[in-house]
Amino acid sequence: MKSTQVLLRVGQAILVLLAAFTLAFILLTALPGDAVTTRYSNPELGLSEAEVSQIRESYGLDQPLIIQYFMTLANFLTGNFGYSVNSGTAVSNLMKSALPGTLTLAFLAFAASIVLAFCIAFASTLPGQGWLRRTVRALPAFMSSIPSFLIGIVLIQMISFQLGWVPVYGASNLQDLILPVLTLAVPISAPLAQVLVRSIDEVYTQPFVQVIRARGASERWIFFHNVLRNAMMPAITIAGVLFGELVSGAVVTEAVFGRAGLGNLTVQAVANRDTPVLLAVVVTAATAYIIINLIVDLLYPVLDPRLCRKANS
């Protein structure tokens, strides 16, 4: 890829990010009216109008919308996400303390989902046309049809209550992670396994596989050295989709298991109509999504030399 192309792609990503910020700002700040007035003009709080307008001023809500927009944008660029309407805490502090829990969960679940997806993909290539093969091949579609909160609840029911393998109360940190990680891994591994199985099938139909087989390579050698390496390329392109699943799944998983983290922060923010917190969460997630897709776009031709050759010829 030429450097001008790279620059163009980066510029495009920045534009989309700016637009995502604008959309989130319109949805969460411009349209709903201001959260402060709704919250503090409640007669039970007994605040006078002057006091309410003072609070509004402290949040910068007395400014015209367009000024608020640019002020918020400037603040976001310097890492200042504003203050929670509900608790008055800086949103960046809230997110900083919530991040480690969610990152641990997300990282472990992502790793588990890759293992799970590869197991399904490998099992789907095993010889035979029997019910086992059909079951394995139907598994990704089945896994993506289960609501993730149901997976979490059923896991608690079976593994904690019926089998007693993971204690419900007084579990260690590690034990506390097992069920949430499994819960989150299922919805992520489903699309990954689907893409892997499909692209493995495709690679098997290509002539070079026949050539290697004719030279006497074993089926296992062909699978691990030739087919899998080629089949992994399309899986990388759905990284953005997987990230979306990861975020949505983390929100639900943290709600089901009552874990502290970004997901729980989001659920609380929605329940309290705490728009500054939700704005920060939405913009952060969109930023991560856009960066991931940018990396995939830039990396793809590097990983697949065929694309480079095609682009140059």
Binding site: L15, V16, A19, L23, A24, V247, S248, V251, L278, V282
Partner: peptide, 22 residues
């Protein structure tokens, strides 16, 4: 199509929660 890109860039659950708050 840029608007579509923007809509896709926000994870679906977060987007629907933002609309729900509104």
């Amino acid at each position: 199509m840029r608007i579509v890109d923007v809509l896709l860039s926000i994870p679906s659950l977060l987007l629907s929660l933002a609309v729900l708050i509104l």
